[in-house]
């Protein structure tokens, strides 16, 4: 089994990033990424270059499948993870129902909100016999593909830098009726979850409304100390603004 080599997360704080290879995957800077976000993250990458880092072009071709795969896998897992909220042992329990089947059903019907129910339904569907191969299994194959692509990427660089989100924060409730758009807002971060990599997000600029723009620094498996060191190197020279809402 792969063992984490060390948990000394602070080891590289304050260390020089000179000679470090930073990968920039083109797919994270394409259509759907806000212009201001793109410019701000690219500026930060230039900043690293001036600190002596080497910038390398890399590619994650399967990024376009990532949201679909991620929402199938995570919803499948969520549908199972959330099953324990049945009102039998703890938490909310419906007053309605005579048998345990009714109690479990009513508890879950009354206790969960719309987004949670949506994911449970999606996940249950993806795992159901007859649909498993078409959805869950395919998503797992994409996960494998993404993992392999990251492996290839990290043979060429030490970390990669991407935007954290395709656009700056939307208003609370703004996308409530458009879950697909809301899910797409996760495009920049979910491959990290899929591939099991460490990542850190830090502010690298502000848009015209003074909303913060984040960049993500993604590292090799168990290499938390490098991404923390890289983030620290940037933060030291960055003027943070107070954000007023």
């Amino acid at each position: 089994m792969q063992q984490p080599n060390c948990f000394n997360y602070c080891a590289k704080i304050g260390a020089s990033v000179k000679g470090l290879k930073i990968g920039v995957p083109a797919e994270f800077f394409g259509d759907g990424i806000d212009v201001e976000v793109k410019a701000s993250v690219m500026a930060a990458i230039k900043e690293y270059e001036s600190m002596g880092c080497e910038i390398v072009s890399v590619s994650l071709p399967s990024l376009k499948y990532a949201v679909a795969a991620y929402y199938l896998i995570s919803s499948a897992e969520a549908s199972s993870n959330l099953s324990r909220y049945d009102g039998i042992k703890y938490g909310f329990r419906s007053e309605n129902g005579e048998t345990y089947n009714e109690i479990i059903k009513n508890t879950r019907d009354e206790g969960f909100g719309a987004e949670v129910k949506r994911r449970i339904l999606l996940g249950t569907y993806a795992l159901s016999s007859g649909y498993y191969d078409a959805y869950y299994k395919k998503a797992v194959l994409i996960r494998q593909k993404i993992k392999e692509e990251y492996k290839e990427i990290f043979s060429k660089c030490d970390v990669i830098i991407t935007p954290t989100a395709p656009f700056t924060a939307f208003q609370i409730g703004e996308l409530e009726n458009d879950p697909v758009k809301m899910y797409l807002a996760d495009i920049c971060t979910i491959t990290v979850n899929i591939a099991g990599l460490p990542a850190i997000s830090t502010t690298c600029g502000y848009d015209k409304n003074n909303l913060p723009i984040g960049m993500s620094i993604v590292g090799k498996p168990f290499d938390e100390e490098t991404i923390i060191g890289v983030a620290d190197a940037f933060e030291k020279g960055f003027a943070r603004k107070e954000v007023t809402l």
Binding site: S83, R84, D86
Partner: peptide
Amino acid sequence: KNYFYPDLPKAY
């Protein structure tokens, strides 16, 4: 293996 039954607290 997922199923709801009160003797299975995780429901799987």
